[in-house]
Computed example of a mutant assay.
Amino acid sequence: MRNVAHRGYSAVAPENTLPAFAAAVRAGATLVEFDVRTTADDVPVVIHDRTLDRTTTGSGHVWDASYAEVAAVDAGSWFSPAYAGVRVPTLAATLELLREAGPELLLEIKPPATLPQVKTVVEMVNAYGLAARTIVQSFDPAILRLVREAGPELRRGLLRLRFEADTVPLADELEVVCLNPSTADVLGDPATVATLTDRGIGVMPWTANDMSEWPELTKAGIAGLITDRVAELTGWFGAQDQLRIHPVRSSGGGPG
């Protein structure tokens, strides 16, 4: 069962930053998820939103800004004064950190993305020797087709806002190793989850922050949980392992 750190350990550090990725590793993440966009001068950077507004002191679309402009903004103080001065990391800096740390990578390419931009991302993953440890995912099937063209050796994952009629055929066509829907879809449509897992396609729902849902989600046959609560999930997995090794037994016939 994968413990997937959503944008790093984003409950304790600003999302999609090097401190969040380092914290995820320390907290026991087995897969670190992050988002990649490309600046106006073709530098891949790690940020979720289309704009700089929510998570930095900048504004405007990421793809309209130069890397120098993105590098100049503060990406930490919105989360806490303790993280003032933290920057939007480049993909290169993120790969450098995680190469040594050990977990696998769940790299989401955000649209819009051209074939040359996708090729740059793929080439960087290969240059850092991380192809075998990386799954490249996207909500956009067109981007996954570009990934297959640029780097057929890389595993691919499809994100879904909801299960739809074309979900399983699309997963087959794109030859993905995982399909990652919302937690509501996993809980509400176990038949589709079963169909995907029977095909060898792992299901890792997002964003699994409600601990009360974890038992039901794991019973559905999922491959992992994408969560902001990395350390809590590490502890919960450990507790489940202990219960399997040392099950709670009945006291039998009572006193005497």
Rank of each mutant, 00 (worst) to 15 (best):
R7G: 07
S10C: 09
A11E: 14
A11W: 01
E15G: 01
N16I: 00
L18C: 03
A20D: 05
F21T: 04
G28C: 07
L31Y: 11
F34H: 11
D35W: 07
D42A: 15
L52E: 03
R54T: 09
T56M: 11
H61R: 15
A65Q: 15
S66W: 02
A72C: 10
G76R: 12
G76A: 13
F79D: 05
A82N: 09
A93I: 10
A93V: 07
L97H: 04
L98H: 11
R99Y: 01
G102C: 06
P111K: 10
T114E: 03
L115W: 03
L115P: 05
V122H: 09
V122T: 01
V122P: 00
V125A: 02
V125S: 09
G129N: 09
L130S: 01
R133C: 02
S138D: 11
F139Y: 14
D140P: 06
P141K: 09
A142W: 08
G151K: 05
R155S: 13
R156V: 11
G157N: 07
L161K: 14
D166V: 07
D166I: 06
V168S: 04
V168H: 05
E173Y: 11
E173I: 05
C178A: 14
L179D: 07
T183F: 05
D185P: 12
P190G: 02
A194R: 13
T195N: 08
G200W: 04
I201L: 04
T207A: 06
P215G: 03
E216V: 03
T218R: 14
L225W: 03
D228V: 05
R229G: 06
V230S: 13
L233A: 13
G235F: 09
D241S: 13
I245W: 08
G252R: 14
G252P: 08
G254I: 13
